[in-house]
Amino acid sequence: MSKFNFPESIMSRPVYGTLEPRSGKAHLMVADAQGAEAIIGLSKADSGLLSKTHIIYIPKGTGDTYTGKLEKLGAAQLYVGPSYEAAKTRLQRTLAGAHMGLQVYLSGTEGLMGQAMLEATNAGIPHTAIQTEHRGSVARRMQCVHCKGITEDVMTDPFVCSHCGLSLFVRDHYSRRLAAFQGVCIDAEDPGNVPASVELYK
């Protein structure tokens, strides 16, 4: 198992659950890395579910650890892509063609779930109707509040903005519209005094 129990936090911070099969004629599952485990769990909970499911999966550093297992689930459609960016237009096209009642399941890292949720909400699905389950890395997708650049897969606090180079501290304040947490300059009041980075949740 690769589940992490996030400590309680502020109200803008997303809270993740456990995926459960829902009834419906069409299902969309989007996952990265260890998020595949949650999909496999769904197929065990409801053996008939996957034949009505489109899976979009990004292994993200897990190689073929999960791809063989996913292939055996008998999904109606299975796409394994090299990156979220590469998969995004397929996801958008799938949502654009979806009918009322599509069930959406997201699992894996926060960055993947946040971005896929944004596509789903842009397509008109309320965020409260989308199931999520965190699996794998606790890395975060961060927006620099200063230059607006996004830094993916941030594992430490503070971290260096990959766009403007400022040292940013990691806030729990989260924007669904940006699918990102907020990073704020840590040494603004004492330039140059940047504390040593620590790994998130260590």
């Binding site: 109200m11 607006k148 729990d172 924007s175 669904r176 907020q182």
Partner: peptide, 22 residues
């Protein structure tokens, strides 16, 4: 506070960082 970050949030979300009041 940043409008660009908070735009689209609901009342509880944009006030999330305020201590004690919740």
């Amino acid at each position: 506070w940043s409008l660009d970050f908070d735009i689209g949030m609901n009342f509880f979300e944009w006030h999330a960082p305020v201590p004690l009041a919740h």
